[in-house]
Simulated assay, not measured.
Amino acid sequence: MKYVLPLLLIAVGLAMGIAGIVHGEADDSPGLQLLGVLLVLATVVLGVRTARRSG
């Protein structure tokens, strides 16, 4: 049960990053795509760090 909140936050972060990438591609905006990629990478890094710290 203690893993529900971190998993939910990771899922929301990934969804927002992917949405940023998709909308940046549709709007032809490289800045929005970059922000989406950075958000996805940061979410993955923080998710892995949290998983490793939890044991």
Rank of each mutant, 00 (worst) to 15 (best):
L14T: 04
V22Q: 03
V45H: 01
L14Y: 02
L39F: 07
G47Q: 05
R53C: 02
G13Y: 01
R49V: 13
R49A: 13
E25K: 08
L35T: 15
A11G: 13
A15C: 04
K2F: 09
L38C: 14
L39S: 12
R53N: 08
L34E: 04
V48I: 15
V22D: 00
G17Y: 03
T50D: 15
L32A: 08
A26E: 14
L34W: 12
P30R: 06
T50M: 06
I10E: 13
I10R: 03
G17C: 08
T50P: 01
R53P: 02
H23S: 13
R52D: 05
G47Y: 00
T50H: 08
K2P: 09
L39M: 14
V45M: 07
G55S: 06
L7T: 06
R53Q: 11
V37P: 02
T50R: 01
L7Q: 06
S54I: 12
G24K: 10
G47I: 05
R53T: 07
A15K: 03
P6W: 03
L41I: 13
L14R: 00
R53M: 08
R52K: 10
A26N: 12
D28P: 01
L14Q: 06
L34G: 07
A51G: 07
V48G: 00
G13S: 09
D28A: 13
A26F: 14
H23L: 14
L5N: 03
G36E: 00
S54N: 11
G17M: 06
R53E: 11
I21K: 02
H23D: 15
R52L: 15
E25C: 04
V45C: 05
T43I: 03
G20K: 04
T43L: 02
L14H: 02
K2E: 15
V4P: 04
I10K: 04
E25D: 06
S29I: 08
M16Q: 07
V12E: 05
V4T: 10
A15T: 12
V45T: 04
L32F: 07
Q33N: 09
G31P: 05
G17P: 06
G36I: 03
I10P: 02
P6F: 02
V44I: 15
G55K: 05
